[in-house]
Computed example of a mutant assay.
Amino acid sequence: MFNLAQLYHPITANPSKTNEYLPCKALQPYIRCFWGSGLESQNTEVSNMHKSREIIIPDTCMDIIWEMDKSTGCASTFFSGINDTPFEIPYEAENESSHFGIRFHFWAVHYFADDHLRDVLNAHADVEQYFSTFHRDLGLLLAETSSITERITAAEAYLLRRLEGTHRTSDSMMNAVHAIINSKGLVGSDELQVSSGLSSRQLERLFREYIGVTPKQTADLVRFQNVWQELYQPSPQSKSMLDIVYAYRYSHQSHFNNNFKKYAGRTPLEALRYARKR
């Protein structure tokens, strides 16, 4: 599989305040990162940064999230599907619970999941609805770990086993995904049909089956992520706000602001203030 992750690197609402760890090379085309909290060995400044509520924006990824209550030793796991709306989660003190997450690129979840992904939009489901062996093959091991390194090692072994012999994909669909990524979401239906060799109806069926959203929804989310990266990670070649409006084909500034707020839950300037606060 071509490593689309080399072309696309989605970020969160507060990228500098996350505990993210890259997977091994074999998993990089599929896994955006591992992440965790609640372990003594982690960076205290990063782990304790959110003292009230944390905003989650659509990053086009999907997550398996394992959580253990430190007081009881009880663990629970759920699968978070692709999101197209922002939401907030409450801050949990590091001494109360421990978390470990596997963050999948949106195009890769179907390589590991047991079933179709038609119902994953904005979904939070029990992990075994999509990964039926998770508790047996990984969850029990995570409960015995004491470091993020041990958790990542166990998770990589589990994911590599699930990947073996997997062929449930469509090259035509992946060609359309590549076109969306390569164009930064600025691709129309006709172009996707040419790149994939499929009709719009066929593409929509495959995207809903393997990703959970339509090609247009996918392109809109990828465009938002690219815009957010342009704003958050300025460089000498960075565009001005007005340049971004036109480069990403918004009709005017208000259209840009409204579309950005739809996904980020706040205006571009408010989002930047949130991301840069200490």
Rank of each mutant, 00 (worst) to 15 (best):
D126F: 13
D126L: 15
E128L: 09
Q129P: 05
F131C: 02
S132L: 07
S132D: 09
T133K: 14
F134S: 04
F134T: 04
H135K: 15
H135C: 13
D137M: 13
D137E: 15
L138H: 00
L138R: 03
G139S: 02
G139Q: 05
L140Y: 08
L141N: 11
L142M: 07
L142N: 05
A143W: 01
E144Y: 06
T145Q: 07
T145G: 11
T145A: 14
T145V: 06
T145C: 15
S146H: 15
I148S: 00
R151V: 06
T153P: 02
T153E: 13
A157N: 10
A157K: 12
Y158N: 05
Y158T: 08
R162V: 02
E164V: 05
T166C: 13
H167D: 14
H167V: 12
R168F: 10
T169W: 12
T169R: 12
S170D: 07
S170M: 04
D171N: 13
D171G: 14
S172A: 13
S172D: 13
M173D: 01
M174T: 10
M174N: 12
A176F: 08
A176M: 07
V177E: 01
V177C: 10
A179R: 09
I180F: 06
I180A: 00
I180C: 00
I181M: 03
I181G: 00
I181V: 15
N182M: 14
S183V: 12
K184I: 11
K184W: 12
G185W: 04
G185Y: 00
G185C: 08
L186D: 09
V187L: 05
V187C: 01
V187G: 00
V187I: 11
G188T: 11
G188C: 11
S189V: 12
S189P: 10
Q193D: 03
Q193W: 03
Q193N: 06
V194G: 05
S195F: 13
S196E: 10
S196F: 09
G197K: 09
L198Y: 07
Q202F: 01
L203S: 04
L203Q: 07
E204F: 05
E204W: 07
F207Y: 10
F207D: 03
F207P: 04
R208E: 11
E209L: 13
Y210T: 07
Y210S: 04
Y210P: 02
I211P: 07
I211L: 11
V213S: 08
V213T: 08
T214V: 09
P215E: 08
K216C: 09
K216I: 15
Q217F: 06
Q217A: 15
Q217G: 14
A219Y: 02
A219R: 01
